[in-house]
């Protein structure tokens, strides 16, 4: 069954809304109701981690049963959220999609080099083996996977959802990849001064738009400690010292919780290497003898 058929069946079974993806070129999340089921799509541009919406504005409490489309990486968030009792398991129907990796749309535009927005109906994109095939108005472009894949996908350990109620497509057999903390090790090899220099140069750029926090599916506290004025943990002033405090506090709050979906880094308008920071914490946690993220799969199903 394809995604739309699966979704139709779920709507028939009483799911009220499905958080999924829409669009081919202009991909964005959608809160699809039953009459919008045909809008649901999935392709290599479906980059967003939709589990974030489950905890936003008390959404799970407003709806009886919600479907949510997850890739392998996103599915880990569901496990973590369930582990934290963020919502009850029977509220959500997890629609798992095995994923060959996702791509930043800007990279495609850059590669194709055409100055325009492609219409959804003239644009097709899919994986064919180790190649990405893009068809625009009959013209076809091919890109090698290694060249175009998002960094986080290159070290993806879970192309298949680790928790799901329904699966769309077939499970992927891929050579076992492993996160070896290459980037973290690289930066750890620098001297303390060099590391400091590296990080302050990054944190200086932060504009404190809080996109990293708001996009993070695991930053869902009703009242964030970083906004409190009494006591004031982080000053609101946008300055290097406060920015560092902001990012470090957030990194600590995600210790052993971050599932590495990489959304924070993706959305950062000034390109802070936030995944690197989270990975560093993950590595520390692992070195201390804790399992870095993956809890036993049975938690979910």
């Amino acid at each position: 069954m394809d995604l739309v058929e699966v979704a139709k069946k779920l709507f028939d079974e009483g799911v009220e809304v499905i958080i999924g993806y829409q669009g081919n070129f202009n991909v964005k999340p959608i809160f699809a109701k039953a009459n919008e089921v045909d809008k649901l799509t999935f392709n290599p541009l479906c980059i967003y981690n939709l589990t974030n919406y489950l905890t936003m504005e008390g959404f799970v409490d407003k709806v009886d049963k919600i479907g949510v489309v997850v890739k392998g990486c996103d599915s880990k968030t569901i496990l973590q959220l369930l582990d934290e009792n963020a919502f009850s398991r029977d509220k959500i129907v997890v629609i798992g999609i095995p994923c060959n990796g996702v791509i930043d749309v800007n990279k495609i535009v850059e590669e194709i080099g055409e100055f325009r927005e492609f219409k959804d109906n003239e644009f097709k994109i899919k994986w064919e083996g180790d190649e990405l095939v893009v068809e625009v108005n009959g013209k076809s472009y091919k890109f090698p996977k290694d060249k175009i894949l998002l960094e986080k996908c290159k070290v993806c350990e879970t192309p298949n959802p680790v928790v799901y109620d329904v699966l769309v497509g077939n499970l992927i057999q891929q050579p076992h990849r492993k996160e070896e903390f290459k980037a973290v090790k690289e930066i750890e090899s620098l001297s303390l001064e060099q590391r400091w220099e590296f990080w302050i140069k990054e944190f200086e750029k932060c504009i404190r738009c809080y996109a990293c926090r708001n996009v993070c599916p695991l930053c869902y506290c009703e009242s964030c400690v970083l906004e409190r004025l009494e006591p004031e943990f982080v000053r609101r002033a946008v300055r290097l010292d406060e920015n560092i405090a902001y990012h470090l506090i957030r990194a600590y709050h995600l210790a052993n919780r971050c599932v590495g979906c990489g959304e924070c880094e993706r959305v950062c308008p000034v390109n802070l290497p936030l995944s690197l920071l989270n990975k560093k914490v993950a590595k520390e946690v692992k070195d201390l003898g804790f399992s870095e993220f993956l809890k036993p799969i049975e938690v979910g199903r």
Binding site: K28, P29, I30, F31, N52, Y53, M56, I207, R208, C209, Y210, A211, R213, N214, V215, R236, A237, V267, P269
Partner: peptide, 21 residues
């Protein structure tokens, strides 16, 4: 689907809301 982050407002050349603290 809005995340209510500040990207659009902070990058916008005309947004001018501010706080005083």
């Amino acid at each position: 689907i809005c995340l209510s982050c500040g990207i659009c407002t902070y990058l916008c050349p005309t947004c001018h809301c501010f706080d005083i603290i």
